[in-house]
Simulated assay, not measured.
Amino acid sequence: MLITTLVEDLGQDPEAVRPDTRLGELEVDSLALLELLTILEDEHHLQMPDDVGAFSNDPTLAEVADYLQSVQGSAAPLADAVKDGAV
């Protein structure tokens, strides 16, 4: 879901989007991050945090998925799928 959203909605290169890819490598700035979180919230009914400060340290996609899992238990399949490279 996370990787699919980055590729399909934000136009990222599918080959560049892996669980160990950092947001900075994808040039995801604060505006793109807010767009990503809004899309995940709207399309996948996830509750996104109001404070995106947790993403200011240039996390990997796996770390983003772990964070989303920690703030919302139902995001667990998202984190697992990102780690497996399935999403």
Rank of each mutant, 00 (worst) to 15 (best):
I39W: 00
D42E: 13
E27K: 07
A54H: 08
D29I: 06
P49R: 08
L6F: 05
D50K: 10
L36A: 05
D84T: 03
L23Q: 06
Q12S: 14
A81R: 10
D9H: 15
A32R: 13
A76I: 00
K83H: 04
V28Y: 00
G11E: 02
P49D: 05
D58F: 05
V7A: 04
A79E: 01
G53T: 10
K83L: 01
A32G: 02
T4M: 15
V17R: 05
N57Q: 13
R18D: 10
P49Q: 08
T4G: 14
S70A: 14
A81L: 02
S30Y: 05
P59A: 03
V52G: 13
V87S: 13
H45G: 13
A32M: 10
S56Q: 04
V52I: 15
M1A: 13
M1N: 12
N57A: 09
A54C: 07
A54V: 12
P19C: 01
G11D: 06
D20H: 13
E63F: 03
G73R: 11
E27I: 02
A81I: 02
D84K: 12
D80H: 11
L2E: 04
R22I: 07
D29Y: 00
I39M: 01
Q69A: 15
D66N: 11
D9V: 12
S56V: 02
T21P: 08
T21G: 06
D20E: 13
G24Y: 04
A65G: 06
P77D: 07
P59K: 00
D9N: 14
I39S: 01
H44G: 06
G53C: 09
D51V: 14
A86C: 07
R22G: 08
T21Q: 03
V7I: 15
V71M: 08
T38R: 15
Q69D: 13
Y67R: 11
L34P: 11
Q72L: 05
D66L: 09
V28H: 03
D58P: 01
Q72K: 12
V87M: 09
G24N: 11
L37E: 03
V64N: 00
E27A: 11
A54P: 08
L2A: 08
M48N: 14
T21S: 14
E63V: 03
L78F: 03
E8H: 14
M48A: 14
L31C: 01
L68P: 04
V71T: 06
D84A: 12
V64T: 03
L2C: 07
T4Q: 15
V71N: 04
D58G: 00
E43R: 14
V7S: 01
G11Y: 07
A65Y: 04
G24V: 09
G73E: 13
T38S: 15
Q12Y: 06
H45Q: 13
V7G: 07
D20S: 09
D20R: 12
A86E: 04
P49Y: 02
G11P: 00
L10R: 03
A75D: 07
S30W: 00
L78C: 05
D51N: 14
H44N: 12
R22P: 05
L46D: 04
L6W: 06
M48L: 14
